[in-house]
Design a binder for these strands. Structure first.
Length: 79
DNA sequence: CTCCTATTTCCTGTTT
DNA sequence: CAAACAGGAAATAGGA
């Protein structure tokens, strides 16, 4: 992924399926797909872990219930 | 083992 | 046309 706006916590997935694979690895689920990961992401809007960013494909923004993305520089990834 | 909630899986329709 | 986006439903996973 790439940061669109580090301060605001806005990022964009460059290779959606690759990200889904990584997510799958972390959850030891080799059959994860972006379609399914994105469904979980959409539930995150509900929980306000993510804020909705419309009109921009593959762009998401961390919400107030998220944490840990402000300090990590050389970290792995994750919300 | 039970409860409960987060996440996954599936699906169908819309939008980009 | 190929990906994303959208949610409802139902099934699971895993932690308390």
């Amino acid at each position: 992924m790439r940061w669109e706006n580090r301060q605001e916590g806005v990022f964009k997935f460059l290779r959606s399926e690759a990200v889904a694979q990584l997510w799958g690895q972390k959850k030891k689920n080799s059959s994860m797909t972006y379609e399914k990961l994105s469904r979980a992401m959409r539930y995150y809007y509900k929980r306000e872990i993510l804020e909705r960013v419309d009109g921009r494909r593959l762009v998401y923004k961390f919400g107030k219930n998220s944490s840990g993305w402000r300090e990590e520089e050389a970290a792995g990834s994750r919300n």
